[in-house]
Design a binder for these strands. Structure first.
Length: 192
DNA sequence: AAACGGTCCAACCGCAAACAG
DNA sequence: ACTGTTTGCGGTTGGACCGTT
């Protein structure tokens, strides 16, 4: 199998992109589309590997990207979908069309994970950590946590139902194989 | 004003799935 | 059916920036 040489090739640039490089990449894609990412750098006159170009385009240059702070709505969506999909960032990003998976991943790791931790919720399972459940402490914070949990749980179920509906739709429109129709095209099954 | 520590984000790395011959 | 190549994804890291001491 061998991995593609990609960035191992000598002479290829790494690190932050310059405005000139951005310009070249943008201009090329606007004119020709990205086509084969592997062939793109040479055609566009860039000393980068295709992988790097693809990443730069997807995460930064694409015109339909919304940058800046996440809204409350977006935040909630991410939390709900993360409960459903786990670390399937691309899947989550598919429900936030103007956000990239990288951005969502960063936001989760830097903001949401910590926040859930603070609230006594395990960010991985999104279930209350043991001592949060055993709120024998009588701490009002725990009550708040539980109430949040209830909210999330219902939101989670709702999102799950929606996903199932959507994937059925996708499955039926793209044909036959009913066994696989309940899963997303690339990421199989909702492993929760 | 400088040093230090923490936070955030862009970009890289390596793996696995998908695709093509 | 098999093998090699390309693409896409998730995890991780480096460094710039910002707040605190």
């Amino acid at each position: 199998m061998g991995r593609s040489p990609c960035c191992d090739k000598v002479g290829l640039k790494k690190g932050p992109w310059t405005p000139e490089e951005d310009q070249k990449l943008l201009a090329y894609i606007e004119q020709h589309g990205h086509g084969s990412w592997r062939a793109l750098p040479a055609k566009a006159g860039l000393q980068r590997c295709g992988k790097s170009c693809r990443l730069r385009w997807i995460n930064y240059l694409r015109p339909d990207i919304k940058r800046g702070k996440f809204s409350l709505q977006e935040e909630q969506t991410i939390i709900q979908l993360h409960a459903l999909l786990g670390n399937r960032w691309s899947g989550i990003a598919a429900h936030l069309p103007k956000r990239t998976d990288n951005e969502i991943k960063n936001y989760w790791n830097t903001h949401l994970k910590k926040r859930l931790n603070k609230m006594g919720i395990d960010p991985v399972t999104q279930k209350p950590k043991t001592n949060a459940l055993g709120s024998a402490t009588g701490n009002p914070k725990d009550a708040a946590t539980l109430s949040h949990m209830a909210q999330w749980e219902s939101a989670r179920l709702e999102a799950e139902a929606r996903l199932v509906r959507e994937s059925k739709f996708v499955g039926s429109s793209s044909s036959s194989s009913s066994s696989s129709s309940s899963s997303a095209p690339q990421h199989t099954s909702n492993t929760v």
